[in-house]
Amino acid sequence: MLASNAVFASEAAAAPEKSPGDVLIFTNGDQLTGKLMHSTGTTVTFHSDMAGDIDVNWSKVKELRSQRQFVVLGKGARKSWRSLRSVPSGSIKVEDKKIELKGEHGTQVMPIASTADVLDQETFENEALKEVNFFRRWTGTATLGSTLISATQNNYTYTGAANLVRSMPSVTYLPPRNRTIANFSGSYSRITQRQAQGAPVLPDLLSSIYHVDAERDEYMNSKIYLLAQTSFDHNFSQGLDLQQIYGAGVGWTVLQRPNQTLDLRATLGYEKQQFLDTTTEQNKNLIGSLVSMNYNLKLPLKAIFQQQVQYLPAYNQPEAYSVTENNSLSFPLYKRFRWQVGTLDSYLNNPPMAIYPAPSNRRNSFQFTTGVSYTFK
C-alpha cells in the first residue's frame, strides 16, 4: 500500500498543471472563461464552452487576461507574408482600452484602436509561416443535378460541378501567400425520340458541355499576384472537340471586403482548338490572352452570388475570339447543403462548318442549371 501510494503521489507530481483559460470581463461585471480566438481594432472573437464563438465590441469589454502567447499586428502597416516573420509576440493583458504585450524584448502598450489583428502564436505560426501538405486545407463545393423524363420522348440530363480552392493562409485576416484553384463543370443530355411505324429512323439528340481549369497564384503583396493557369473545354453544339489553353500572367484583387471580392486577371499563352466532324485544316493553333473578372457577393439570408466573365482574344487570328460568362446563386438548405441555380453562356466567334450530315455548329450555347451543392471545409 505504501508503494502504491508513492507511485500515485509521483504521478500526481509529474502531471502538468492545466493552464487556466482566458478570462473576458464585460463592463457590466459579467465574465466568460474560454479562449481568445482573434480580435481586430473594433471587435474580439471569444470562444466559450457554454456560449460558443461570440463577437463582442471592444467598447463592451472592461478587461481580458490570458497566459498564452499572442501576436499583435499593427494597423496601417503594409503587410506581406514575408514581413510577418518579425511581428511582436508575447502574453497579453487588455485593460482601459489598451493592449499590454509582454514579450522577450520588453513590454509594449498600445491602444486597441491601433491594432489590426491579434491572434494566438500557434495559429499564427501554422497559418502564416508553415508549409502544409498540398492535399490539406482544400475548401469548395460540389453540385449535382439530373432530369429524367419518359413520355413522348425519353430525355436524360445530368449536370455536375466542383469548385475547389486552397488558400495559404486559410484565414482572411492574414496577408495571402499563395492560392491553388481547380474547377470542373459538365452537362450531358440525350433525347431519344419515339419512332413511328414505317417512318425513317429519327436520330438521338445529344448535347454535352464540359470545362476543367486549374490555376496557381503566388502573391507579391496582399493585392498583386503572379499566376499560371490551364483549361480544357468540350462543347458539342459548337463542334468543339477539345480546346486547350496554357498561359501565365498577373492578377489584381481590386476589392477585398467581408461581404464581397473582385479579382481581375490577364494572361498571355497558347490556345489549341480541335473540332468535330470537320477537316484537319480548320483546327487552330492560337497565340492570345485570357482576360477575366471574378466577383463574389454575400447576400442576406446567407445567399451567395458568384460571377465569372472571360474574354479570349487571339493575336495571330483576330476573328478566333471567344467569350464566356458563368453566374451562380446559392441558398442554404441544411448544414453544408445548399440549393444552387446557375447559368453558363459560351460564345465562339468562328466555329468551322461541319461536314454533312453532321449538324451545323453554333456560335452560342446557353445553359441554365439547378441542383444541390455540398460545401467542403
Score class of each variant (00 low, 15 high):
residue 3 A to G: 08
residue 13 A to C: 01
residue 14 A to S: 05
residue 23 V to H: 07
residue 28 N to P: 04
residue 37 M to C: 14
residue 38 H to E: 14
residue 39 S to A: 15
residue 41 G to H: 05
residue 45 T to L: 15
residue 54 I to S: 12
residue 56 V to W: 00
residue 57 N to Q: 14
residue 59 S to Y: 12
residue 66 S to G: 09
residue 70 F to E: 02
residue 73 L to C: 04
residue 76 G to K: 05
residue 79 K to F: 00
residue 82 R to P: 02
residue 87 V to M: 07
residue 92 I to N: 03
residue 93 K to P: 03
residue 93 K to A: 05
residue 101 L to I: 00
residue 102 K to T: 10
residue 105 H to P: 04
residue 107 T to Q: 10
residue 113 A to D: 12
residue 114 S to C: 03
residue 119 L to S: 00
residue 121 Q to V: 05
residue 121 Q to D: 08
residue 131 E to S: 15
residue 138 W to S: 08
residue 138 W to C: 09
residue 145 G to Y: 05
residue 156 Y to P: 03
residue 159 T to N: 15
residue 162 A to W: 12
residue 165 V to N: 13
residue 167 S to F: 11
residue 168 M to K: 14
residue 168 M to E: 13
residue 169 P to Y: 07
residue 174 L to I: 01
residue 174 L to A: 04
residue 176 P to D: 02
residue 180 T to N: 09
residue 181 I to K: 07
residue 187 S to M: 10
residue 196 A to V: 10
residue 198 G to W: 06
residue 200 P to G: 01
residue 207 S to A: 07
residue 208 S to W: 00
residue 209 I to N: 14
residue 209 I to Q: 14
residue 210 Y to V: 08
residue 211 H to M: 04
residue 212 V to H: 03
residue 212 V to N: 02
residue 214 A to N: 04
residue 218 E to G: 14
residue 223 K to T: 14
residue 225 Y to C: 06
residue 226 L to T: 15
residue 241 D to H: 09
residue 243 Q to R: 14
residue 245 I to Q: 10
residue 257 R to K: 12
residue 262 L to V: 05
residue 262 L to Y: 09
residue 268 L to N: 06
residue 269 G to V: 06
residue 274 Q to L: 11
residue 278 T to S: 03
residue 280 T to Q: 10
residue 282 Q to A: 11
residue 282 Q to K: 10
residue 282 Q to M: 13
residue 303 A to H: 07
residue 315 Y to I: 06
residue 322 S to L: 08
residue 329 L to G: 00
residue 332 P to R: 04
residue 333 L to N: 02
residue 333 L to F: 03
residue 354 A to M: 08
residue 355 I to N: 09
residue 358 A to G: 01
residue 360 S to V: 10
residue 369 T to R: 11
residue 373 S to K: 07
residue 377 K to D: 14
